[in-house]
Every structure is written in C-alpha cells, then in structure tokens.
Nucleic acid binder design. Structure first.
Lengths: 348, 348
DNA sequence: GACTCTGGTTTAAGCGCTTAATTCTCCGCT
DNA sequence: AGCGGAGAATTAAGCGCTTAAACCAGAGTC
C-alpha cells in the first residue's frame, strides 16, 4: 500500500522554488511588495495561490519579535456583559489591524491564570483582561515581560496599568436614585455577602443616594450567590418576614438576582413587580431584557468598555517604551428603564 | 535621562547562563526532567523562577512542528448555544492537555474566515468549527494542510471530516410530537424564510410528526429573522388574521422567536401562552429559561456537542496520518418542558 | 592499567521566516 | 569605452527553541 503523502503546510521555500525565485523575494512580495517587480510578484502570487501557502506565524514572530495578535481573557462568557466586552474589543481591534483571540476563564481562577500564561507563551502583542479577583502575579508577569495588559472593570490596588472602569459607585447611585425618584422610601440592596469589589462600590453608591434623600430607609439583604436562584431565595425569605415592613424598592446587584427576586415574589404571591415592589438590576444582561418582567437596570456598557480597552492597548503599543503613561478610562453607566419600575412612577 | 531598560521575555539562554549550564540542559529540565541530575535541575528551576522565564511557544512550535493549542471558531457568542459548545470543548480539551482558544465570528462570514486563517497561520494542532453556512474553501484549506478540523452542528455536503451533529430532524419531531401529545391539532411552524440547513431539517421533523398523527393540520409561517422581534411581528400578523382559525400550537424554530411570539401574542391581547396557544422553542437558549413565559424547548446540548468535538479531534490527532477514518457523532436532542406548553397538557 | 558502560552534559544542526547587506543587471552619461 | 546608479534579486545571519549525536568524567570489570 502506497504511503499516504503527509500533508503539511507548504513553506516559503516551496513557493520560492515553484516561482523560480529566492525565498527573500517571496517574503518581499508579502511584506514589501513595492520592492519587487510586478512581473515577478505576479508569478509569486500565483505560486502562493497554487500551493495554498499560508505564512507560518510562529516563524514570523520568532524572526520579527512581533505579532498582531492580542489575547483577551474573559471572566465568564455565560455573562453577557463579557460577551459585550468581547464584541467591543473586537470592534476596536478590527479597525487597527489587531487580531483578537479569546479565552474563557469560566469563573475559574486557575483557568484565568492558564490563559494568561498561554498568551504570554504565545508572545501576543498585548492582553485584555477582565479579572475575577486579585490576580496580581499573573498581571505582574505580563508587565515584567514588557507585554502591555489592560484591565477591564476592575481596580487593582498596587498594579499600574491602563484600565477601563465603569463607575460602579455611580451604578448603585443611579439605581437607587431612580427608585427614590419614582417614590420608593424603603429601599433594599440585595447582594451576595462575598466581597467582590464592584459589589462594594455599588453598595456605596446606593448608600450615597439614600443619604442624600429625605426619609428614605435602606436595608441590606445578603443573597446566596449572584444568580437567579439566589434571588428566588431572597424573595422567599421576604415572603416569610414578619414584624418589619417589606421594602418597596429593591436594588439587586445583578440582573439575574433581580429577575430571581421578581420571579420569587410573584410565585410566592407576596408582591407583584412593579405594582408592590419596584426592582432595579445592574449590568443590563441579556436576561434583563427577557426576564419574567422586563427589568429596569443600570447598563455597564460592556461594548464600550471593550472598545476603550482595545484603544488603550493600541495606544500603549504605539508608544515608545518608557514614555507610556498609564491611563484609566471610566465609562459612565446609564439607566435603562423597563417594566420593573414602571408602576411606581405612575403610582406616586 | 537614563534609558529605561527594555523589558522583554528572558530566553532559555539567559536561564542557562544564570544557572551556569548549557541551553540544552535547560530544555531538558523542562521537557525531559528524567535526563538531568536532580541537583542541576534544581538550580535551573531556581533560575527559571528568578528570571520569570516563560517558554517562547513560537520557537518551540517552529522547532518541533507541534503545539497543544487548538482553535475554536464560534458562529455567535450572543447565542448561548455556542457558549455551551465552548464550555463543552474546554471541558473536553482540558482533560487531555489541549489548550483551547476561541474566535467569535459574530455571524460574520468574513470574520469566520479570518479566524480560520489566523489559526492556520498559528499552526494550531486542530480546529473546531461551528460553521455559519457553506464554508468549503476555509475548511478545505485546513484539511489540505493536514490540520484536523471537526465541524459542529452542520452537515457539509462534499466535505469529509469528523462532525458532531444534533439530529435536527429529531428536534422538529420532538417539538411537534410534544404539542400533539398535549392535544394541539392546528400546528404552525415558524421560521425565517432564509434557508439555513438546521431550519430545513427541523421543518422536516415537524412534518413527519404531523404526518404520523391523525387530524392534525400544519401551516408554515415565515418570520423576518430568527430573533425576538421577528416573533413579535409574527404574533401581530396573527392578531390581524381573519378567516382562518389561529393555530393552537406553535413550533418556533428558535427560542428567541418563540419568546417573541409569546410576548407579541400577549401584548396584542390575541391569546395567552400557554392558555390559548402552546409554544415550543428550539435550542434551549438561556433566554428560554427566563423569557416572558418559561419556554418549553428542545435542547441541543451544546456542551455535549463541544465535548464530543474535542474528543473527535483528539482521536484524529492521535491517529497516524492516513489511518484515520472520519466519524460523525450525533447527539440526540431532548425535550425540556416548561410553562409555555403546561396549560395545554392540563386542559385537554 | 586498559576497557567498556553509563548517566550527565554539551555541541550543533535545523525549524520557517525577516532583513540588512550584498551582488548583479541594465541604463544613461560623459 | 568606462563609470555611476537605480532597481531587482539573492545571500546569509539570526530569532529561541528541540534533539540527535558527540563528549566526558567516574565506576566497574577482568
């Protein structure tokens, strides 16, 4: 039986032979076409097409020390916020000739580190990271290799790199303010006990809004996790409450949580949203749009963040080493009004 | 002003000098530790740690011709089906030492090709692809370079490679059968006119179920697109219908479409779901779980598909060239009952 | 004491590309 | 005829790693 010829990527040398020129000419056709005579170039291009030649980027990277690929590590693709960031980053990268590859950490710190390591090994031009928690060492490693890294949606004490933030304090403030303006006076802030930095900031914003207002009370409710089920559980706890009056306005620290609360309240027959209790979520996830009741929420503008991050990265890449000054871009969150707070507005 | 020392990745040679050994020994410490004396290895490891050395994967790839990275091109990360596939693939890859990087085509054929090209340039070990439409050339290029590629959720006439399919005919069948079993007799199949292959298959399945049943009618309704808004539009068209009776059971070819129909029917006050009309979606997107009414749907099992794809890829990678026989794994879809068909079951 | 092992280490030849430096041609000028 | 150039193509030196082959003690053997 005849040995199947092992298929493999043709090399530049193959192309060169095929076109009857030297390997350098092939390279020139690809990288500096103006240096080669049109007739020759044409012959080379034909050879490339005929052989199906695709440049070996590893070799190119090795020779030049640069590549146009950048890596992005996302905390959790199940959360549409990060998908939005990916979109924005791709948008931003596309325009300037950078190529974006993604890694999904899937809420796993180890995986996040794995991807950072992978991208470092691959010598990507730069990295976009939406970190899950303090990830100093991974970030430091990148930076110590002179590889730009920009952080999304996380303030990292003690690390200096370009960062894109959403003003999470403002997120909480906008949410609470909206409830207060629609007439709520007994607010509740629902979050997981887990001290995740954006949660803290949003809590602070809610506090500020309440403090500014007259005669508005605030209670903090701990949920179990940040997902739908956690919200349902909170609603059921609320259903069983005696003594203290129920809140009339809830700021849920995530949309999922908000949806869960709305659902739980409804099925437990304690209260209707927004009739009895208004609910505001945070982040404007896909799920907010299509929940049991369309959720008013404060959008983080993931796409904008991703785009800004790509822009910052490009800026750093284009600045001569040493002259770069790190910047922080802060994206302003925006209220998105939907049904879950509509009644209150009409009512009062 | 003193020139800032240009930070860069330390090389193996740096490590070798630092540890007072040759570069080959460093390589051996990393790749075949059993070949080097423990004392030396220890010294080298210390040097690696001290310098923060990270292997240059491009150089390694160039030298060995192989890498453990595989690429996955996803049609649309906004669709949770593909996120599920990514999860499954990662799961599958993780266990066997393959490293998965993602590219989001975002429904853009050009971008899908770009990613295939990128991965080909990067000389990844293999590719996982959920193609959007006929993408013969991109696939052929991969294959002609001897790079394994496995297709997800798409039957590609004329291309032979390993494939993971969901039985889309069965999807339609299961959906329609469920409606019929709950007592519906006037079915409607709602899909975009656009001839997307899975749509055709699901339509065929629906037809088969109807043909098998007694006294059940079927109409086909064309929607504008496969998203929520398309469904709303269909509902409004239905609302204005005269002469012909409304269907009592709807198979929507996607969950978004199903949600849109349920929403449109409700707001137009024509009918309630599931009270008057039962609705079944397809795919089991995240949106199905948290729509205006929880949608009964037929799940495609994206995670299972991703995992199977990774397994097929590994199989091909481990088979000596030429001996590999392409296989197709078919995942059986499964009905997920939720509220949107509950009433019908109780009613009839 | 010459001889073979053998475990440990180094040497050196690539892998496929880029690019500075070089060589080669062919022209136009004097 | 001879010379300087411009333009086009080639040569060759790496980039950072892997790995087969060569080398080099020091320990057994007879």
């Amino acid at each position: 039986m005849p040995a199947t010829p092992k298929k493999t990527n043709p090399s530049m040398l193959d192309v060169a032979h095929h076109a009857g020129v030297s390997i350098a000419t092939v390279s020139n056709v690809i990288n500096r076409p103006e240096k080669v005579a049109e007739a020759t170039a044409e012959r080379v291009r034909a050879a490339i097409a005929e052989l199906g030649f695709v440049r070996n980027d590893a070799a190119r990277l090795l020779a030049t020390g640069t590549t146009s690929s950048i890596g992005m590590v996302l905390a959790d693709l199940d959360n549409s916020l990060y998908v939005d960031m990916a979109h924005g980053a791709q948008q931003g990268a596309d325009g300037v000739g950078l190529r974006l590859v993604l890694g999904n950490a899937a809420c796993d710190m180890r995986r996040q580190d794995d991807y950072l390591h992978l991208f470092d090994e691959a010598r990507v031009a730069g990295v976009l990271l939406s970190p899950m928690e303090d990830s100093l060492d991974g970030i430091e490693r990148m930076r110590s290799h002179g590889r730009p890294i920009v952080l999304l949606n996380y303030e990292q004490a003690g690390v200096e790199c370009c960062t894109v933030l959403v003003d999470n304090e403002q997120v909480g403030y906008v949410a609470a303010r909206h409830l207060i303006e629609t007439g709520c006076t007994r607010l509740a802030f629902v979050a997981a006990r887990d001290e995740y930095q954006p949660v803290r900031a949003r809590r602070a914003g809610v506090r500020r809004a309440v403090a500014e207002a007259q005669g508005v009370s605030l209670e903090t409710i701990d949920a179990d996790g940040l997902r739908f089920e956690g919200g349902q559980a909170v609603a059921h706890a609320l259903a069983g409450r005696t003594g203290r009056p129920l809140p009339d306005g809830v700021v849920a620290v995530t949309d999922d949580l908000g949806n869960g609360i709305a659902d739980g309240l409804h099925t437990a027959l304690v209260a209707e949203v927004p009739g009895d209790i208004a609910v505001v979520g945070c982040e404007d996830n896909r799920s907010a749009r299509s929940g049991p009741v369309a959720l008013t929420t404060v959008e983080l503008r993931g796409a904008k963040m991703g785009e800004a991050a790509a822009a910052l990265l490009l800026e750093e890449l284009n600045t001569p080493a040493g002259e770069h000054r790190h910047r922080t871009v802060t994206v302003r969150p925006a209220l998105v009004e939907r049904a879950s707070t509509a009644q209150a507005r009409l009512g009062v």
